[in-house]
Nucleic acid binder design. Sequence first.
DNA 1: CATATACTGTAGGACTGAAC
DNA 2: GTTCAGTCCTACAGTATATG
Length: 358
Amino acid sequence: MAQNNLVVKRNELIEGNYSLSAVAQKVAAAVIAKVNPEADSLPTIKLSAREAIELLGISKQYFYREMDNITDELGRILIRHNQLDEKKLVKSNFFLRSTYDETDKSVTFEFHPDIEPYIRDFRRNFTKYQIRQIRNLNSKYSIRVYEVLRKYHPIKCSRSESYYEVGIDEFRSMMGIEEGKHQRISNLREYVLKRAEKELTEKTDLTFKFKMLRKARKISSIKFTIYHNQRNIKQEATNKDDPEVLTEQEEQLFSDLSTLIKGIEVKEVKAALKFYAVEVLQEAMFTYFLAQTRGRDIKNPKSYYFGICKKLNDHYKPTQNNTSSDADSRGLAKELLDDDWAKVMLDEFVDGDENIDV
DNA sequence: CATATACTGTAGGACTGAAC
DNA sequence: GTTCAGTCCTACAGTATATG
């Protein structure tokens, strides 16, 4: 069995006989990125079709057709870990169960209880930032290369370049290259390394050069020189208005909103941010959540949510114009969290004020 | 002389848009 | 939401030639 590192984190994650396709890797990254590291219990992660399509950059048809295969693939991811006495090596499935819901076209993933101790580490490895970076990579090897090199040249690294040397066999294993594939160095170079070099340079915030080193005649290792890809980092800064490109804050907001409100779109979040402060959108989520937990039947989630935003916004304007902003904002927060106040807000909506446009 | 490199061909898989 | 037809891509392998 090939033991292939998916994340370069203490060899904890391995795969079964199969290496993951590019799309399956993106789905795994998206699912793990949605895990809240602060949560007490193991989360169940729901990925809607719309969300998957936007996050992963695939077509609707492809999602519907391939979701079955993708969940199969993800079901084969194994995690290798030591149990209590450190003497037993245990292999557990990463995902306990994945469910495709026909009615709302979403896939729900449940993690295996064994992996609970690692979930925060995974969350750190599969940041949302990475998802944006790997979204447009077509080759599964490019995604792996990005993950590996990112480890040796972190996003916030102040060095302009980093070095990483790896043995050929270890590299094959890290890439999830199965026995017998890409046996020729020429093929490995062309279809794994050069393709990754080209794709990362064109599409991500990381770029690299590589050199193959020999022992006698035989190529024994690869030396990478890794750089920040200034070209794409600069581009990102100027892409604020591009509906496809999100800042970290927008992405967080979108991610939180999608778990709460079915079918919310990136462009809607972008538009809302032009009208309302982030705090208003966040507090509206809280109010929405309260309403939901109290069993309110929300017929049109989006309108209801944006309705709350509008109300909140109007409610706050007078206080915002006051002088001491720090004390005010604390007051606002307290007021927002105050149960009685929320009740008032909710009562206002009970009579069906749901058709407010943004 | 073992192995790498360069170039070329190809089967079948991955993926898409358009039409149902 | 599915099917279909078509394109593009991946993962090789054959051959010739270069090189340590």
